[in-house]
Nucleic acid binder design. Structure first.
Length: 274
DNA sequence: AAGAGCCCCAACCGCTGTACG
DNA sequence: TCGTACAGCGGTTGGGGCTCT
């Protein structure tokens, strides 16, 4: 069947996300969730297609994402899981909390595949050696592409338990926060809006400094009054309807969001239809 | 110091699966 | 049952940073 393009290309921005766009997207999702990705950019006032917003959120902006280099244990887990699952990156990501399918895919193609290739083994080993000749030390993930924020590389023992952590096999790590995803699975319950509290987010990292930048980013973003955004939020009935009819939004979810909105104090003005 | 080449990764593209009317 | 819309997944790539020469 003829599929319409994911979005109207006309007038929609492509390429790297700016910090401003990130903030708008984060603020919108914090406030309204993402019941409908296609409608989200319009509601948030972003000149992006829903697909782009979704990818940006899932691969970069979700607060439960673990940034930085992969530990040896994680790499071993990826190799093992790849042997079992093949190129089902989302399934692999589901077993590596905090890692996205895109990230795992990148690591596989850039490191692990070569490592498993016997012809590259020697070369790869040389690269692994700290003082080995020719190995390019991984740069400390400097911001790229329009203000991308990356945490400094963690030490190799960051997530020894990651590979064995129990994670729902049904949903990947890319499942949304509104679907009681890995955030909950990692025990960060009780935080408002389904986000991990900053304390839990940072304290879950063995090295608190690892997320220093992200913490400041989230602190800034979470504390930022929404009115400070240039782009007006447009909570509309369509979104509420989408959330209400969403297959993943049960009555409890609706009650939860309603409570959140009520507590925010502006539900009357913002969402009169709920 | 400067240029070349390599490496990495964020983001795009196109396809599939699923829900719904 | 069919057609459409949407979310999600995996493959691919553009381009910036880093290292080497």
């Amino acid at each position: 069947m003829g599929r319409a393009p994911c979005c109207e290309k006309m007038g929609l921005k492509k390429g790297p996300w700016t910090p401003e766009e990130d903030k708008v997207l984060v603020a919108h999702i914090q406030r309204f969730g993402h019941g409908n990705w296609r409608a989200l950019p319009k509601q948030a006032g972003l000149l992006r297609c829903g697909k782009s917003c979704r990818l940006r959120w899932i691969n970069y902006l979700r607060p439960d994402i673990k940034r930085g280099n992969f530990s040896k244990e994680e790499e071993d887990a990826i190799i093992r899981l790849h042997q079992q699952l093949g190129n089902r990156w989302s399934a692999i990501a589901a077993r590596l909390p905090g890692r996205t399918d895109n990230e795992i895919k990148n690591v596989w193609h850039t490191h692990l595949k070569k490592r498993l290739d016997p012809t590259n083994e020697i070369k790869e080993e040389a690269r692994e050696a700290p003082t080995g000749g020719g190995k390019k030390q991984r740069r400390p993930a400097a911001p790229k592409r329009g203000g991308a924020r990356r945490a400094p590389p963690p030490d190799a023992a960051t997530e020894a338990s990651a590979a064995t952590a129990p994670v729902s096999p049904e949903r990947s790590a890319s499942s949304s926060v509104t679907e009681s995803s890995s955030v909950t699975e990692q025990g960060n319950t009780g935080s408002s809006l389904g986000f991990p509290k900053e304390e839990s987010f940072t304290s879950s990292a063995p090295d608190a400094e690892e997320f220093q930048f992200d913490e400041s980013f989230w602190s800034e973003t979470l504390s930022m009054p929404l009115e400070s955004f240039d782009v007006p939020m447009e909570p509309c009935d369509a979104f509420g309807a989408a959330a209400a009819t969403s297959s993943s939004a049960g009555a409890d979810d609706m009650d939860y969001w309603l409570r959140v909105f009520m507590e925010s104090g502006d539900v009357q003005q913002e969402l009169p239809q709920i």
